[in-house]
Design a protein around this nucleic acid. Structure first.
Length: 303
DNA sequence: AACATATTCAACCGCGTACGC
DNA sequence: TGCGTACGCGGTTGAATATGT
């Protein structure tokens, strides 16, 4: 939060502001207004650059600044505005009295972005993420190759290979939800993956067999399916009107376009890929049979 | 309790733009 | 029109703090 006090080559102070500096800046602006920011520090008697003074005033000292936690309503409004405006923090801040662009930007980067990711939404487009499809395809190929190599090297080790396979699937889930080991902000999703983890450990053979539908892997994934089955009502966050400098009509057109795209059956594609990935004939018998069948012909290629 | 790791957020930096000359 | 200056914005940094082991 704080930086070590330092100064640049011109001798101007940098880093955190002291209470004394705050008071000088406050008093000066309340008396004279800020005027030219560049001229202000000299006139007020501060050993700071104008830029630093402006930032301190707009982000901290301004009397109309609202302090404290963002309300749920404010968070939702920011998400809605971001869906329309993108990373235009100043424009977003203009719709939230007392909140600064810096504060909103920080909130977005530390909380809201993760929140959308964990809901399976792309934080840039606010639409369901599709990059999982590529991940699934790539990982599936890598795992298949790893299996062949491992089982050919040591065919008796098939159980460990399958265990690794299962672990890799769980890692993929973690990546999809952007979970960190210490994250406890979104308990429902953590318990969801915890449940999946237990399922992996307790019911590995079944897990590796089934997978026609995401929710069949674990009941918790019914929620996940809901997120990837967007309807006209839930495919996008409620959108609010754009800022005056943008055409509300145009925005409305974009919103409609987005809704149409969202209603495309990308979720079906996802589930097909997911089903393939989870099913994937990954049983012991399959791989033993595969090795029996292909061992001689592939062995020379692998080596 | 001590250490490691993750998160937060105030502040900085660089770039684009508006404006005056 | 071109140039210089000031300002505002968005991305990034990094020390303080929180959380986990």
């Amino acid at each position: 939060m704080m930086r070590t006090p330092s100064s640049d080559e011109s001798g101007l102070k940098k880093g955190p502001w002291s209470p004394e500096e705050d008071k000088i800046l406050m008093d000066y602006i309340q008396k004279h207004g800020h005027g030219s920011w560049r001229a202000l520090p000299k006139l007020a008697g501060l050993n700071r650059c104008g830029k630093s003074c402006r930032l301190r005033w707009t982000n901290y000292l301004r009397p109309d600044i609202k302090r404290g936690k963002f309300s749920d309503q404010e968070e939702q409004l920011i998400i809605n505005l971001h869906a329309v405006l993108g990373n235009k923090w100043a424009a977003i801040a203009s719709h939230l009295p007392g909140r600064t662009d810096n504060e909103i930007k920080n909130l977005w980067n530390t909380h809201l972005r993760k929140k959308l990711l964990q809901m399976g939404l792309d934080p840039v487009t606010h639409r369901p993420r599709t990059d999982h499809l590529n991940l699934l395809t790539n990982l599936q190929q890598i795992l298949a190759a790893a299996k062949i190599v491992s089982t050919l090297t040591n065919p008796s080790d098939i159980n460990n290979v399958l265990r690794l396979h299962s672990d890799a699937k769980f890692q993929l889930l973690q990546n999809m939800f952007q979970l960190t080991p210490s994250s406890n902000s979104f308990l429902p999703l953590n318990s969801l993956t915890d449940g999946f983890m237990n399922h992996c450990n307790n019911d590995l053979p079944n897990l590796l067999h089934d997978g026609n539908s995401v929710s069949e892997i674990h009941p918790s994934f019914q929620n996940f399916e809901a997120l990837h089955h967007p309807t006209q009502e839930n495919s996008l966050p409620n959108l609010v009107s754009a800022s005056p400098e943008r055409s509300p009509l145009k925005e409305a057109e974009n919103v409609n376009a987005n809704s149409k795209e969202c209603s495309n059956p990308s979720s079906t594609t996802f589930e097909l890929a997911w089903g393939d990935f989870m099913d994937e004939d990954a049983t012991e018998n399959y791989w033993k049979g595969f090795i029996d069948q292909h061992c001689n012909q592939t062995w020379s290629t692998v080596q």
